[in-house]
Design a binder for these strands. Structure first.
Length: 257
DNA sequence: ACCTCGACCTGGGCGC
DNA sequence: TGCGCCCAGGTCGAGG
């Protein structure tokens, strides 16, 4: 409830900030603020001694809305004002993001956090568990990876990328994957994520970090959004298909049996 | 116990 | 400089 934010949050310090899957968790003294940015959510720090950008710079080629520091505008839905006069703004154009407050500790025992699979960049992500989870479902491999319950944190970009690296087609059923194929995918997932981190994220249109800076992983993509273009490995034309209700791209040559 | 689909939103780009 | 349509890094709840 909205009232919880104004009655419970004031006076509490932020003890730590964590991430789990696509969720940000702000641990306060007696509550945990759970943030999901959806497609277009942004959290930015507002420094009272710095000047606001006069407007959001929109890149003519990427549509990227870029700013370092912004005043409250019509897309700013929530602001957290600190005791020193600075603030943290939550801005979300499409409003698909969610912010919830849990008593500290309850956030992990309840959905959506309790439904998440392992973190793919941590030791808890094991091949045996991954393989067993894939065996349990009748879905396509793309649907399974987008479901945060098998692996946490993968979205449309990194699923398409991991499938390319593993040479698997998004439409293939989990039940039909060989051990070798599952092993390739298990290794490809951390690989594409680490690359995304190394290049500061994939800035297709909206994404910028909290300093208003864009990443460059969009220049490194193998297949995502590249349908109609040449495969960087074999030169064949990247195909577009709808899989698990999401636009998907794959190379018909590299990703075939 | 699955799974699929439409709904939830705004805005940019493109064709006419 | 308008209008209608398509598209977009993601979930969710209803219904099969």
């Amino acid at each position: 409830p909205e009232a919880d934010f104004t009655t419970r949050i004031p006076g509490q310090h932020i003890r730590s900030v964590r991430r789990r899957g696509k969720h940000l968790l702000f641990d306060l003294e007696s509550d945990c603020l759970l943030v999901h940015l959806g497609m277009t959510g942004q959290m930015t720090f507002w420094d009272q001694n710095a000047s606001d950008a006069s407007s959001f710079y929109v890149s003519p080629t990427t549509g990227l809305q870029r700013t370092r520091q912004h005043a409250v505008d019509k897309h700013t839905h929530l602001s957290f004002w600190f005791a020193d006069g600075n603030a943290m703004h939550y801005r979300d154009i499409r409003q698909f993001g969610k912010i919830r407050l849990f008593p500290l500790g309850e956030e992990s025992r309840n959905p959506p956090i309790s439904n998440l699979g392992p973190e793919p960049l941590e030791p808890g992500f094991t091949f045996d568990d991954f393989s067993a989870a894939l065996k349990r479902t009748k879905r396509s491999i793309k649907a399974a990876l987008l479901d945060q319950g098998i692996v946490a944190g993968l979205g449309n970009i990194y699923v398409d990328e991991a499938l390319f690296v593993a040479k698997l087609r998004p439409t293939w059923l989990c039940s039909a994957l060989t051990t070798r194929e599952k092993r390739a995918l298990f290794e490809a997932i951390p690989q594409v994520l680490e690359q995304g981190i190394r290049f500061n994220g994939t800035s297709l249109r909206d994404y910028v970090n909290s300093e208003g800076e864009r990443g460059s992983n969009q220049e490194m993509l193998w297949v995502y959004g590249r349908y109609g273009e040449a495969c960087r490995v074999c030169g064949d034309t990247i195909v577009r298909a709808t899989v698990a209700q999401r636009t998907s791209s794959y190379c018909p040559t590299c990703q075939s049996r």
